[in-house]
Design a protein around this nucleic acid. Structure first.
Lengths: 143, 143
DNA sequence: AGACTGACTTAGGCATGTCTAAGCCAGGTA
DNA sequence: TACCTGGCTTAGACATGCCTAAGTCAGTCT
């Protein structure tokens, strides 16, 4: 899980990723929205691109020079449940201020949450979960 | 979401939290399993306790002095979907080595995943999601 | 009483993350 | 041609994260 951790570990990487999900594509968009300095923004965009979480593509607006935009790859998009789960938890438990983000199903408009399901499609509460790390006895946690 | 980020941000905090889910309760268990040094382990346990993600409780084994054990609070337990989503992504995309953790439904034995669902109980793929940030992130330069 | 042990704390140091300030470069505009 | 602008890179400094080594302290065992 080392790489997964790296992606979310630093504040800056997380913010860049979050803005990618919100729809940022240009360098300056990332820098402004995240509030990060330009060097850090550049470094994170490179790292995320190297990790194939973002990809770069040249584009050109009329009367403008060619530029590069950054967009999420498939691998990057699949981090969405992590982000959603984090936001959800923050909204529920964080003291200062309520929800900052609305997450809704585009089709039906209903709010979206990240939840645990088994492949038999049962909703799985925390105390019905077996977490079995390599080599150790399974333990049930929760509540 | 600042606090949610803090919880997962540093490597050490994440590892401590992960071991709490795996079932660690004693100081030395945390230190050994995470591989963190004692000072860092102590600092993270304190911070997580202050954040009410863990709670301490004195206990005593026969013939032993009283000790404290650390366990997840309700608030802490609800971080589980975040962890599961991260592990799942890591197992799917990480190069070196396959799945390190098995996550199963205790009742039926089926593997568990974190997935996005709306309150109408539709499974929500990434491209059917409306992410609408309410109010832009303030520029927080200078920490 | 004195040694032992688990659970920490303190001190000091290197590595990493982030910042500001300044510079560079390519392409379009005047 | 010279200038301007977006998109970076470089340099230097400070803050934080993590480490090792060593010390402290409360209770148990002999």
């Amino acid at each position: 899980m080392a790489e997964a951790l790296d992606v979310v570990r630093t504040r800056s990487a997380f913010l860049v990723l979050r803005e990618a999900f919100y729809g940022a594509t240009r360098f300056e968009e990332f820098a402004q929205r995240t509030g990060l300095s330009e060097p850090v923004t550049a470094a994170r965009l490179h790292e995320l691109t190297d990790a194939r979480i973002l990809e770069r593509e040249p584009y050109q607006e009329p009367g403008q020079r060619t530029r590069r935009l950054y967009r999420l790859t498939q691998k990057g998009s699949e981090l969405l449940p992590v982000l959603v789960a984090l936001m959800q938890w923050g909204d529920r438990w964080e003291q200062d201020g309520g929800a900052r983000v609305e997450i809704r199903h585009h089709g039906c408009g209903a709010p979206v949450t990240a939840q645990l399901r088994c492949t038999e499609d049962h909703a799985v509460p925390g105390d019905e979960l077996d977490l079995a790390p390599r080599g150790r006895a399974p333990r049930t946690r929760g509540r």
